[in-house]
Design a binder for these strands. Structure first.
Lengths: 122, 122
DNA sequence: CACAAGTATAAAGTATACTTCATACTTGTT
DNA sequence: AACAAGTATGAAGTATACTTTATACTTGTG
C-alpha cells in the first residue's frame, strides 16, 4: 500500500496525472478508515498494473474513455460476463487493426528510405 | 486535380479537417494561376496519399507534429538526405515499439478473457 | 438571372488530456 | 515549536486537434 508520491515514482507518471486518472474513474485508491487525522489515499499493486496498461494503450492511440472500458471489463464485477467479452473482443479487433496499419506504415517508410538512398525524389 | 469537396469524398475526411491540415502545413494544394476569377485550390493524388498516411498514423497515436516530420522527410527536398533518414529511422523504431506494445496488450486481454471464461475474478 | 451549392477565410467554440495554481491541512525532522 | 515536504481539492489554464459559425465571393442549373 503506497501513497501517491511512491506510486508516481514506481509507475513513472506525474502525481497530477494520477489524480486526473482517479478523477476520471480509471483507477482508485482507498483511504484507511482507521486513520481519522487525514484522508490520504493508498494504492495497491493493482493500480500499478492499471497505470502500466493505461500507458501502453495511450501510446498506441486509445483514448482514456476506451481504456476505461477495458479496465472496467477487466476489474469490475458489476458488468455481465457477456458485456465484458464484447468489450474485450472489440479491443482485440482494434489492436489487430492497429498492428496492420503499423505494418503498412513501416513498409511505406522503408520504401521511402530506399528511394532516398537511390536518389529518387519520390 | 480535384477541388476540396472531391478530395474530401475520396479521402473520406471532412472538408474542415482538410483545411485544418493545410493550415497546419501537412498538405498543400495549388491555385491555378491562369484562373483569376477565384482562388479555388486544387489537389493532386499526392495529397490523397498524404491524407491516407495521416489517417493511419493518427490511428496508431502519432501526433500531427510527428506526422508532419515524416511527410516533410518524405516529400520536401529542402532537407538533407541525412536528416530525412534520421526522421524515418526514428519513426521506424517508434513503429516497432508500438507493435510490441500492442502485442503485450493483446496477450493481457486474451489472458483476461480466459480468466473470465474460467470464472476467475482476476 | 435567380438561387442553390461550392469555395475561402478568420474567428470562436469544443473535446480530450493534462498541467498549474491557490489554498489548506498533515506529517516528519530539527 | 518551527518548517520543509507531502497530501487533498477545486478551479483555472494549456496544448492538440478539430468543429462550428459568420461572412463573402463564385459557379453551375433551371
Amino acid at each position: 500500500m503506497k501513497l501517491i508520491s511512491q506510486l508516481a515514482r514506481e509507475a513513472n507518471i506525474p502525481i497530477g496525472t494520477i489524480r486526473f486518472y482517479e478523477k476520471s474513474g480509471l483507477i482508485s485508491g482507498k483511504t484507511k478508515k482507521d486513520i481519522t487525522s487525514n484522508n490520504y489515499v493508498y494504492y495497491d499493486d493493482e493500480v500499478i498494473e492499471k497505470l502500466r496498461f493505461i500507458k501502453m494503450a495511450k501510446a498506441v492511440g486509445f483514448t482514456l474513455a476506451e481504456i476505461k472500458q477495458v479496465i472496467d471489463a477487466w476489474y469490475q464485477k458489476e458488468l455481465t460476463q457477456t458485456s465484458k467479452m464484447e468489450v474485450l473482443d472489440l479491443k482485440l479487433e482494434q489492436i489487430d487493426a492497429k498492428i496492420r496499419e503499423l505494418k503498412v506504415m513501416k513498409k511505406q517508410i522503408e520504401q521511402c528510405k530506399s528511394n532516398i538512398q537511390n536518389g529518387l525524389s519520390r
